[in-house]
Computed example of a mutant assay.
Amino acid sequence: MAADGRAEDAMGKRRYLALWFPFLPIDRLRIARPDLWAQGEGPAAVVEQVRGAMRLATLDADALALGLTPGMTLADARAREPDLRVFDADPHGDQDWLERLCDGCSRYTPVAALDSPFGLMLDITGCAHLWGGEEMLAREAAERLERHGMRVRHALAGTAEGAHALCRFPVGAAADEDAALRRLPVEALRLEDESAVALRRSGLRTVGDLAARPAAVLASRFGEAAVDALHALLGLGRRPLAPRRSRPAIRI
Protein backbone atom coordinates (compact mmCIF):
# COMPACT_ATOMS: atom_id res chain seq x y z
CA MET A 1 0.00 0.00 0.00
CA ALA A 2 1.25 3.50 -0.81
CA ALA A 3 2.37 5.87 1.93
CA ASP A 4 -0.65 8.10 1.45
CA GLY A 5 -2.85 5.01 1.86
CA ARG A 6 -1.20 4.19 5.22
CA ALA A 7 -1.69 7.77 6.38
CA GLU A 8 -5.33 7.61 5.37
CA ASP A 9 -5.84 4.37 7.31
CA ALA A 10 -4.28 5.99 10.37
CA MET A 11 -6.82 8.80 10.21
CA GLY A 12 -9.75 6.51 9.46
CA LYS A 13 -11.30 5.19 6.28
CA ARG A 14 -12.83 7.59 3.81
CA ARG A 15 -16.59 7.51 3.31
CA TYR A 16 -18.46 8.90 0.33
CA LEU A 17 -22.08 9.68 -0.40
CA ALA A 18 -23.15 9.71 -4.05
CA LEU A 19 -26.28 11.60 -5.04
CA TRP A 20 -27.68 11.02 -8.52
CA PHE A 21 -30.51 12.92 -10.21
CA PRO A 22 -31.57 10.66 -13.12
CA PHE A 23 -34.28 13.09 -14.27
CA LEU A 24 -32.42 16.35 -13.57
CA PRO A 25 -33.25 18.22 -16.83
CA ILE A 26 -36.96 17.49 -16.46
CA ASP A 27 -37.05 18.08 -12.69
CA ARG A 28 -35.29 21.41 -13.24
CA LEU A 29 -38.00 22.46 -15.67
CA ARG A 30 -40.75 21.35 -13.30
CA ILE A 31 -39.28 23.56 -10.58
CA ALA A 32 -38.10 26.55 -12.60
CA ARG A 33 -40.92 26.60 -15.19
CA PRO A 34 -44.14 25.40 -13.53
CA ASP A 35 -46.09 27.11 -16.33
CA LEU A 36 -44.93 24.37 -18.70
CA TRP A 37 -46.98 21.88 -16.68
CA ALA A 38 -50.15 23.94 -16.41
CA GLN A 39 -52.04 21.46 -18.61
CA GLY A 40 -51.32 18.54 -16.27
CA GLU A 41 -48.81 15.75 -16.03
CA GLY A 42 -47.73 13.26 -18.69
CA PRO A 43 -44.68 11.54 -20.13
CA ALA A 44 -41.87 13.96 -20.91
CA ALA A 45 -38.50 13.87 -22.62
CA VAL A 46 -35.58 16.17 -23.34
CA VAL A 47 -34.25 15.90 -26.90
CA GLU A 48 -31.00 16.81 -28.63
CA GLN A 49 -29.72 16.61 -32.17
CA VAL A 50 -27.39 13.67 -32.81
CA ARG A 51 -26.01 12.91 -36.26
CA GLY A 52 -28.70 14.95 -37.99
CA ALA A 53 -31.66 13.49 -36.10
CA MET A 54 -33.52 14.61 -33.00
CA ARG A 55 -33.10 11.92 -30.36
CA LEU A 56 -34.32 11.39 -26.82
CA ALA A 57 -31.64 12.33 -24.29
CA THR A 58 -33.41 12.22 -20.92
CA LEU A 59 -36.81 10.73 -20.14
CA ASP A 60 -38.96 10.91 -17.04
CA ALA A 61 -40.30 7.84 -15.26
CA ASP A 62 -43.60 7.94 -17.17
CA ALA A 63 -41.84 7.89 -20.53
CA LEU A 64 -39.57 5.06 -19.46
CA ALA A 65 -42.57 3.06 -18.29
CA LEU A 66 -44.00 3.34 -21.81
CA GLY A 67 -40.91 1.64 -23.22
CA LEU A 68 -39.24 4.76 -24.62
CA THR A 69 -35.45 4.75 -24.30
CA PRO A 70 -32.61 7.26 -24.53
CA GLY A 71 -31.20 7.40 -28.05
CA MET A 72 -34.53 6.71 -29.72
CA THR A 73 -35.41 9.12 -32.49
CA LEU A 74 -38.09 11.65 -31.70
CA ALA A 75 -40.08 10.48 -34.73
CA ASP A 76 -40.20 6.91 -33.42
CA ALA A 77 -41.08 8.12 -29.93
CA ARG A 78 -43.92 10.29 -31.28
CA ALA A 79 -45.25 7.32 -33.24
CA ARG A 80 -45.44 5.29 -30.03
CA GLU A 81 -46.61 8.10 -27.74
CA PRO A 82 -48.23 11.08 -29.55
CA ASP A 83 -48.80 12.94 -26.27
CA LEU A 84 -45.12 12.95 -25.31
CA ARG A 85 -44.04 16.35 -23.96
CA VAL A 86 -40.78 17.39 -25.60
CA PHE A 87 -38.23 19.96 -24.43
CA ASP A 88 -34.96 21.03 -26.01
CA ALA A 89 -31.77 20.09 -24.19
CA ASP A 90 -30.12 22.92 -22.25
CA PRO A 91 -26.79 21.56 -20.97
CA HIS A 92 -25.68 24.93 -19.63
CA GLY A 93 -28.89 25.31 -17.64
CA ASP A 94 -28.52 21.80 -16.28
CA GLN A 95 -24.89 22.44 -15.31
CA ASP A 96 -25.77 25.65 -13.49
CA TRP A 97 -28.55 23.84 -11.65
CA LEU A 98 -26.24 21.00 -10.62
CA GLU A 99 -23.67 23.49 -9.36
CA ARG A 100 -26.34 25.15 -7.22
CA LEU A 101 -27.27 21.78 -5.77
CA CYS A 102 -23.61 21.11 -5.07
CA ASP A 103 -23.21 24.42 -3.26
CA GLY A 104 -26.27 23.60 -1.17
CA CYS A 105 -24.65 20.36 0.01
CA SER A 106 -22.05 22.37 1.94
CA ARG A 107 -24.43 21.95 4.86
CA TYR A 108 -23.33 18.30 5.02
CA THR A 109 -19.62 18.48 4.18
CA PRO A 110 -17.04 21.03 3.00
CA VAL A 111 -15.94 18.56 0.32
CA ALA A 112 -18.65 18.25 -2.35
CA ALA A 113 -17.88 17.69 -6.02
CA LEU A 114 -19.74 17.43 -9.30
CA ASP A 115 -20.11 13.82 -10.45
CA SER A 116 -21.26 13.82 -14.06
CA PRO A 117 -23.64 13.04 -15.47
CA PHE A 118 -26.26 14.59 -13.20
CA GLY A 119 -24.62 13.60 -9.92
CA LEU A 120 -22.81 14.88 -6.86
CA MET A 121 -20.13 13.23 -4.74
CA LEU A 122 -19.81 14.13 -1.07
CA ASP A 123 -16.83 13.15 1.06
CA ILE A 124 -18.58 12.73 4.41
CA THR A 125 -15.55 11.44 6.32
CA GLY A 126 -15.74 12.86 9.84
CA CYS A 127 -19.12 14.52 9.20
CA ALA A 128 -21.64 11.71 9.63
CA HIS A 129 -21.70 11.75 13.44
CA LEU A 130 -23.16 15.27 13.32
CA TRP A 131 -26.27 13.78 11.70
CA GLY A 132 -26.55 10.63 13.80
CA GLY A 133 -24.59 8.42 11.41
CA GLU A 134 -24.00 8.15 7.67
CA GLU A 135 -27.35 6.52 6.94
CA MET A 136 -29.16 9.36 8.69
CA LEU A 137 -27.08 11.94 6.84
CA ALA A 138 -27.82 10.27 3.51
CA ARG A 139 -31.53 10.05 4.27
CA GLU A 140 -31.72 13.69 5.36
CA ALA A 141 -29.91 14.87 2.22
CA ALA A 142 -32.13 12.81 -0.08
CA GLU A 143 -35.36 13.84 1.64
CA ARG A 144 -34.37 17.50 1.60
CA LEU A 145 -33.69 17.39 -2.14
CA GLU A 146 -36.93 15.53 -2.79
CA ARG A 147 -38.88 18.15 -0.85
CA HIS A 148 -37.51 20.70 -3.30
CA GLY A 149 -38.72 18.65 -6.25
CA MET A 150 -35.59 16.70 -7.18
CA ARG A 151 -35.89 12.95 -7.61
CA VAL A 152 -32.67 11.47 -6.27
CA ARG A 153 -30.93 8.16 -5.69
CA HIS A 154 -28.09 7.77 -3.22
CA ALA A 155 -25.44 5.26 -2.19
CA LEU A 156 -22.61 5.08 0.34
CA ALA A 157 -19.19 3.49 -0.10
CA GLY A 158 -15.57 3.68 0.94
CA THR A 159 -14.52 5.00 -2.48
CA ALA A 160 -16.02 7.68 -4.66
CA GLU A 161 -16.03 5.24 -7.58
CA GLY A 162 -17.85 2.64 -5.52
CA ALA A 163 -20.52 5.08 -4.36
CA HIS A 164 -20.98 6.33 -7.94
CA ALA A 165 -21.40 2.78 -9.25
CA LEU A 166 -23.75 1.55 -6.52
CA CYS A 167 -25.92 4.63 -7.03
CA ARG A 168 -26.39 3.91 -10.73
CA PHE A 169 -26.32 0.10 -10.72
CA PRO A 170 -28.37 -1.21 -7.76
CA VAL A 171 -27.29 -4.75 -6.90
CA GLY A 172 -29.86 -5.62 -4.23
CA ALA A 173 -29.11 -7.07 -0.82
CA ALA A 174 -25.51 -8.16 -0.24
CA ALA A 175 -23.55 -9.50 2.71
CA ASP A 176 -21.41 -6.36 2.91
CA GLU A 177 -20.12 -3.47 0.84
CA ASP A 178 -17.31 -5.45 -0.75
CA ALA A 179 -19.74 -8.16 -1.86
CA ALA A 180 -22.05 -5.51 -3.34
CA LEU A 181 -19.18 -3.94 -5.30
CA ARG A 182 -18.11 -7.29 -6.70
CA ARG A 183 -21.64 -7.94 -7.98
CA LEU A 184 -21.61 -4.77 -10.07
CA PRO A 185 -21.60 -5.19 -13.86
CA VAL A 186 -18.42 -4.31 -15.74
CA GLU A 187 -20.22 -1.26 -17.15
CA ALA A 188 -19.94 0.27 -13.66
CA LEU A 189 -16.21 0.76 -14.26
CA ARG A 190 -17.01 3.54 -16.77
CA LEU A 191 -14.74 2.16 -19.47
CA GLU A 192 -15.16 2.80 -23.18
CA ASP A 193 -18.11 0.89 -24.66
CA GLU A 194 -15.75 -1.25 -26.72
CA SER A 195 -13.85 -2.31 -23.59
CA ALA A 196 -17.03 -3.34 -21.77
CA VAL A 197 -18.13 -5.38 -24.78
CA ALA A 198 -14.71 -7.06 -24.98
CA LEU A 199 -14.84 -7.96 -21.28
CA ARG A 200 -18.28 -9.53 -21.62
CA ARG A 201 -17.26 -11.49 -24.69
CA SER A 202 -14.40 -12.91 -22.62
CA GLY A 203 -16.85 -14.08 -19.96
CA LEU A 204 -16.00 -11.28 -17.53
CA ARG A 205 -19.38 -9.83 -16.63
CA THR A 206 -18.97 -8.47 -13.10
CA VAL A 207 -16.42 -6.58 -11.05
CA GLY A 208 -15.87 -9.78 -9.09
CA ASP A 209 -14.98 -11.63 -12.27
CA LEU A 210 -12.27 -9.08 -12.99
CA ALA A 211 -11.01 -8.98 -9.40
CA ALA A 212 -10.44 -12.74 -9.52
CA ARG A 213 -7.97 -12.37 -12.44
CA PRO A 214 -4.32 -11.30 -12.07
CA ALA A 215 -3.91 -7.57 -12.74
CA ALA A 216 -1.08 -8.19 -15.21
CA VAL A 217 -3.29 -10.45 -17.31
CA LEU A 218 -6.12 -7.90 -17.35
CA ALA A 219 -3.73 -5.11 -18.30
CA SER A 220 -2.22 -7.08 -21.16
CA ARG A 221 -5.61 -7.99 -22.62
CA PHE A 222 -7.77 -4.97 -21.83
CA GLY A 223 -5.34 -2.16 -21.02
CA GLU A 224 -4.15 -0.37 -17.90
CA ALA A 225 -7.33 1.71 -17.80
CA ALA A 226 -9.39 -1.36 -16.89
CA VAL A 227 -7.04 -2.25 -14.03
CA ASP A 228 -6.90 1.35 -12.77
CA ALA A 229 -10.71 1.61 -12.79
CA LEU A 230 -11.05 -1.72 -10.97
CA HIS A 231 -8.52 -0.78 -8.29
CA ALA A 232 -10.08 2.65 -7.76
CA LEU A 233 -13.54 1.14 -7.29
CA LEU A 234 -12.32 -1.50 -4.82
CA GLY A 235 -10.15 0.92 -2.87
CA LEU A 236 -6.83 -0.53 -4.06
CA GLY A 237 -5.90 2.73 -5.74
CA ARG A 238 -6.83 6.34 -5.22
CA ARG A 239 -8.28 9.05 -7.43
CA PRO A 240 -8.48 12.44 -5.73
CA LEU A 241 -11.84 14.17 -5.50
CA ALA A 242 -11.97 17.67 -6.98
CA PRO A 243 -14.37 19.59 -4.71
CA ARG A 244 -16.29 22.50 -6.11
CA ARG A 245 -15.49 25.86 -4.55
CA SER A 246 -18.32 28.35 -4.81
CA ARG A 247 -17.31 31.85 -5.77
CA PRO A 248 -17.26 34.30 -2.87
CA ALA A 249 -19.41 37.38 -3.05
CA ILE A 250 -17.62 40.47 -4.40
CA ARG A 251 -17.06 43.06 -1.73
CA ILE A 252 -15.89 46.61 -2.35
Rank of each mutant, 00 (worst) to 15 (best):
residue 9 D to Q: 14
residue 53 A to C: 03
residue 11 M to Y: 10
residue 95 Q to K: 11
residue 226 A to R: 04
residue 113 A to E: 02
residue 64 L to T: 07
residue 154 H to D: 11
residue 238 R to P: 13
residue 174 A to N: 04
residue 113 A to Q: 02
residue 34 P to M: 01
residue 198 A to M: 12
residue 215 A to R: 12
residue 197 V to H: 14
residue 223 G to Q: 04
residue 135 E to K: 11
residue 146 E to D: 07
residue 98 L to E: 07
residue 73 T to E: 05
residue 62 D to H: 04
residue 194 E to I: 11
residue 98 L to H: 10
residue 80 R to P: 01
residue 70 P to M: 01
residue 83 D to C: 11
residue 219 A to D: 04
residue 108 Y to I: 00
residue 133 G to P: 05
residue 46 V to C: 00
residue 4 D to C: 10
residue 27 D to R: 01
residue 123 D to L: 10
residue 38 A to M: 08
residue 20 W to Y: 14
residue 34 P to Y: 08
residue 121 M to R: 01
residue 214 P to Y: 03
residue 144 R to K: 13
residue 205 R to K: 14
residue 211 A to Y: 02
residue 104 G to Q: 14
residue 84 L to C: 06
residue 236 L to A: 14
residue 47 V to Q: 01
residue 67 G to H: 06
residue 53 A to M: 10
residue 28 R to K: 13
residue 84 L to H: 00
residue 151 R to N: 09
residue 228 D to S: 14
residue 147 R to E: 15
residue 159 T to Q: 06
residue 42 G to E: 02
residue 36 L to P: 05
residue 117 P to G: 08
residue 187 E to C: 04
residue 17 L to H: 00
residue 121 M to Q: 09
residue 243 P to V: 10
residue 100 R to M: 11
residue 171 V to E: 04
residue 32 A to N: 11
residue 144 R to D: 13
